[in-house]
Design a protein around this nucleic acid. Structure first.
Lengths: 146, 146
DNA sequence: CTTCCTGCAAATCGTTTGCATCAGT
DNA sequence: ACTGATGCAAACGATTTGCAGGAAG
């Protein structure tokens, strides 16, 4: 299902970095392993509560941040400024095609920076951001949730 | 100074839309007319207090939102999720080259969507986001603020 | 058994809203 | 004068922090 890490890989990274493997963290890893798109902290919290009804929001936040810092998760601020997370793919540079409805995300390798663009000014280029937004096939067929 | 609207244009748009021209709004228009880069609500507030020490944050927010809805300002969530505003250029499609230090912004016309890209899936493409981040010439020469 | 992790509660930050007063037209 | 705009304060949502008890190693 996931193009990024599987649960074992994620847990291995945690162990390697000296973090304990708690049930909550195991569950969180599973959530992201089974998910192609982006999840908000609340999404994660909601999925966590299925297995751990007493989980707290701050634990979710703490672990999301921790997993991001370890590189297991990719952090992302959407167009509307909302924070989202997703299992990260560190293997190669790519960009995202994101469904504005269900937020399912596909990656593609085309990168505009590889073209010979003429940029104004004499900026020292550091990085870039390129995302394409649309509606995935599934959401085009299914009635809109709105 | 500004590549976008001048003060007169902005005030004209406000009048045309039936909004009153208050001194605070005039000042806000001036701030954006004299500014090439992005400003956070706090930046705007700080500049406003120079002329109107008793201006309130909510007035700044209200007017920023109003000016965005009118299309006079361009709203933007930066990489770190922070909300910023900038005098908008509605005349043509373009993208931005942004200084990560001073946030001075240049526009350029190259658009990756005009290339014949092969995108995965069968998404119905709606829009896109492309920004290049770097350090402007000025900030390269001047000692870093950090 | 020690240290780290968790859950609770409270603090914090950025932004929005209700309301009485004030100013633009 | 009439109506919309302002400033204050308080509400609000998302995220962070301090602390005591509980679980992983």
């Amino acid at each position: 299902m996931s193009e990024s890490h599987n649960v074992q890989d994620m847990l291995a990274v945690m162990s390697r970095n000296g973090w304990r493997i708690t049930d909550q963290r195991r569950t969180m890893a599973q959530i992201f392993a089974n998910q192609d798109g982006y999840l908000s902290p609340k999404d994660v919290y909601d999925q966590m509560t299925v297995k751990y009804p007493s989980v707290s929001f701050d634990t979710v936040y703490r672990n999301l941040r921790m997993l991001s810092e370890m590189g297991v998760l990719e952090q992302f601020y959407f167009m509307d400024g909302g924070l989202k997370f997703k299992g990260s793919c560190l293997s190669h540079h790519h960009h995202h095609l994101i469904c504005v409805n269900c937020e399912k995300t596909l990656t593609f390798d085309y990168c505009p920076m590889e073209q010979q663009m003429v940029l104004p000014g004499k900026y020292k280029i550091l990085n870039h951001r390129f995302e394409v937004y649309g509606i995935c096939e599934e959401c085009q067929n299914n009635p809109p949730t709105t």
